[in-house]
């Protein structure tokens, strides 16, 4: 039985990596004494598959993982078992049963939504903020230098990778961006592009970013990866 589970990674585990998070969740599943399925082979592991990695240092309210159980289990029961065995900073929010053989999260998820909590060096009205956002998003191209580990820096254009942006509240800008294997945008890069364009926007720290969720884009609409439309094809 395959479950797709939505969970939050919060402040207390901000700095743990994707791999560490997977390990942690495996240990949570063991503590919860779930009837987990194991991978075959020499080094059996609890079968867990996760969506696109969240950068180390970021928190999220909308991460996903697929977990396979060898017995049936009610969703509420599963979630409370997980949450009872989990540190507060990892919270399992919702789950859906998904059919076997469905595309993996990493193959499906292509959109991430981030909230950026911006700080301005001077007082700025809401209208002005909206105007700045509109102006930023209607640029022809948004070039930044991408720093890559153990590889050369390279210039990339964020513009085609940003699907949309809106003012969520004063000082809080919401960006919907490309993520996954076809290309991605790092929130830190949007932050740099913003500070480059507007000197009044202070440098963004990872503490001022929240990943709100991960989605699947279809016909210009976005759906959570366990939406009926996605899991039924």
């Amino acid at each position: 039985m395959l479950f797709r589970i939505k969970f939050a990674k919060r402040e207390g585990v901000r700095y743990i990596s994707h791999l560490q998070l997977m390990n942690t969740i495996r240990r949570i599943a063991r503590r919860a004494q779930l009837p987990v399925a194991f991978s075959e082979g020499f080094n059996p592991h609890i079968k867990i598959a996760m969506g696109p990695p969240l950068a180390v240092g970021l928190v999220s309210e909308g991460e996903y993982l697929d977990l396979e159980l060898v017995e049936e289990m009610e969703i509420d029961e599963l979630l409370s078992a997980l949450n009872n065995s989990s540190p507060d900073a990892i919270c399992f929010l919702q789950a859906k049963i998904i059919p076997e053989g469905i595309k993996s999260l990493s193959a499906l998820v292509d959109t991430a939504v981030y909230l950026l909590y911006l700080e301005f060096s001077s007082e700025i009205t809401k209208n002005k903020e909206q105007q700045m956002l509109d102006e930023f998003i209607s640029e022809e191209s948004i070039k930044i230098i991408r720093h890559r580990r153990r590889k050369k820096d390279r210039e990339i254009d964020l513009k085609p990778r940003i699907y949309g942006a809106e003012l969520s509240a004063p000082g809080i800008w919401r960006f919907s961006v490309m993520t996954g294997s076809r290309g991605n945008v790092r929130p830190e890069e949007i932050g740099r592009a913003l500070s480059d364009k507007y000197s009044c926007i202070r440098e963004l720290s990872p503490l001022e970013v929240l990943r709100e969720g991960l989605f699947v884009r279809q016909d210009n609409k976005i759906y959570p990866p366990y939406a009926e439309k996605i899991i039924r094809g």
Binding site: V13, R14, Y15, G57, S86, P87
Partner: peptide
């Protein structure tokens, strides 16, 4: 903490 290497060494909060 975000400015230094391996910040998870210093956050505690383990199970």
């Amino acid at each position: 903490l975000y400015k230094i290497s391996s910040p998870e060494r210093y956050t505690g909060n383990e199970w």
